[in-house]
Amino acid sequence: MSSNAALALENISVTFAARSADTAAYTAVRDTTLVVESGEFVSVVGPTGCGKSTLLNIAAGLLTPSAGRVTVFGTPLEGLNRKAGYLFQADALMPWMSALDNVAVGLIYRGTRREEAHERAREWLARVGLAAHGHRYPHQLSGGMKKRVALAQTLIMDPQILLMDEPFSALDVQTRQLMENELLDLWSADRKSVVFITHDLEEAISLSDRVVVLSAGPGTHPIGEYPIDLPRPRDVAEIRLTPRFVELHREIWHRMKDEVMKGYVQSQKVP
């Protein structure tokens, strides 16, 4: 195991306790190892319900694994992962704060003076194209705008590791490609280590340095790792038309489709 890895999940297993006497305990993740090098953009793909969010919660320190070890820049993780920013799958903005206050709140938690925090929040809102919307509350923003605010809220903290859980899955195709390109722009500025969860293989290939494919649940584990040797900077819409992309897509999809079918069958079962 390379010691300079930004994030290393080693032999992680997660078993959720049974909720009542007539349900069995559920092992969502079994013996999974995932290493993210410093500055690397890694995507994790897998069928819905396989345990992607669970894995990310482990990396964030929000969940303790039943077995296995998590290290962050070589140090074992205890409690929350203070080096990581987390972009949640569901809406996570505070509905009672304006967009500006939402972006500034992390700095204020950290002890930054209010005016300075707001000043920097304004810069970040401008960077994600929302300079004019700082006074709005989350319910007054569209889905794409909310994701931008959430992105600014996380990035303003300048985390060394960025954990993203299907951040764009709820967006329409056009907004999504815009956001993906924006993400790549922001990322290329300072190359954070990124774990990007998605169920969309095309998104995974077009963004990442490496794609990890997970098996269907229960007992999810990686079944393939694919380095993506596409040149950067990329445009996510254009790169999908290149022959190398198509080739990579075919190769990974071939490995994935059985798992997707299994995942589908699994989700049809009455528990």
Binding site: L62, Y86, F88, A92, P95, G106, Y109, T154, M157
Partner: peptide
């Protein structure tokens, strides 16, 4: 989720 988010933000 809002709670987890606030905690992750410190």
């Amino acid at each position: 989720v809002v709670l987890a988010n606030a905690r992750m933000l410190g």
